[in-house]
């Protein structure tokens, strides 16, 4: 009788009512919309460097230029320690992962506001938007990583099987960027102040992460002050950057206690971010 409605689909019942209390994650729905996430990631990758002269070269230039400046000022002039590898390689490796994180966080924070035309016109789990923003940066990370490899080989450091562990810090940075991105993007919908806070926040975050300096200069000082060294790992990027350098540069550090604490911190950030996001996302269309 009703050709357009096969029985199977008719069973799909959606109930619309005001939610009470905290929103749940509704993971089944996220799975349902996985194709849309792929499309959003694909779109973000496609448009990231449209109408730029240098295109994807920016993915390399940003960490490269920053590392060059750091090498000059912190490596040569301030003579900051670098875990026994040349400071240039040390800071470039740190900047590769940091750039992925910082770009992802910055794009994610503005992603919802930038997608207001979508949010007010069509339904889909809004979580997809900031998650896509961060995930799209993985391609840039891969490109930068290739350049890092060349630099490593050129500077005679040599690569080891440790390289296979690179995805671990990458995922840790991804989780951190998504977690923080969920918080900031949701807050940004209501409080546009976030837009001004984010660049500042990222800058401060860089200074408290072992990008310019190694964790080995911080942890002993914490311990000397009678504090446990793992406190430094509460910044998820501390564990991520240390693990990344351990894997890519083969530095002689033991980052794993730090990584364990950082992983826990990143997961906590992700869980609270997702919970907050899910509980306020129903107001986005009214406020954005």
């Amino acid at each position: 009788m009703n050709p357009a409605t096969p029985e199977s689909a008719r069973d799909e019942l959606v109930v619309i009512e005001p939610a009470r209390g905290l929103g749940s994650l509704r993971a089944a729905e996220l799975w349902e919309y996985r194709e849309l996430l792929q499309f959003l990631i694909w779109r973000d990758i496609k448009i990231r460097y449209k109408q730029t002269v240098l295109g994807a070269a920016w993915a390399i230039l940003q960490p490269l230029l920053a590392a060059a400046v750091f090498t000059l000022f912190f490596g040569r002039i301030a003579r900051i320690a670098s875990d026994g590898v040349p400071y240039a390689a040390f800071s470039f490796a740190g900047m590769v992962l940091w750039t992925f994180f910082a770009q992802g966080l910055s794009l994610a924070s503005n992603s919802l506001v930038g997608s207001s035309h979508l949010i007010t016109k069509v339904y889909f789990p809004r979580l997809m938007v900031p998650v896509a923003s961060v995930t799209a940066g993985l391609l840039d990370l891969a490109i930068a990583l290739a350049v890092l490899l060349i630099i490593i080989l050129a500077s005679g450091l040599g690569v080891s099987l440790r390289l296979l562990a690179v995805p671990i810090p990458a995922i840790l940075a991804l989780i951190t960027a998504v977690g923080a991105g969920l918080w900031l993007s949701a807050l940004n919908v209501k409080y546009r102040d976030v837009r001004f806070v984010v660049p500042f926040l990222i800058q401060m975050w860089l200074f408290v992460s072992p990008v310019i300096y190694p964790a080995s200069t911080v942890v002993p000082r914490l311990e000397a002050a009678g504090l446990p060294g793992w406190l430094f790992g509460l910044n998820p990027m501390a564990g991520a950057v240390e693990a990344f350098r351990w894997a890519a540069l083969g530095v002689d550090t033991h980052p794993w206690p730090l990584v364990a604490v950082s992983t826990a911190a990143a997961l906590a950030l992700l869980a609270t971010g997702a919970a907050y996001f899910r509980s306020v996302e129903r107001f986005f269309a009214d406020v954005v």
């Binding site: 409605t5 689909a9 008719r10 069973d11 799909e12 019942l13 959606v14 109930v15 619309i16 009512e17 005001p18 939610a19 949010i119 007010t120 016109k121 069509v122 339904y123 129903r282 107001f283 269309a285 009214d286």
Partner: peptide, 13 residues
């Protein structure tokens, strides 16, 4: 797209 303040709707399909 937006949540109702009160009431309930059921949609089949």
């Amino acid at each position: 797209i937006t949540e109702p303040t009160e009431g309930r709707a059921e949609i089949r399909g």
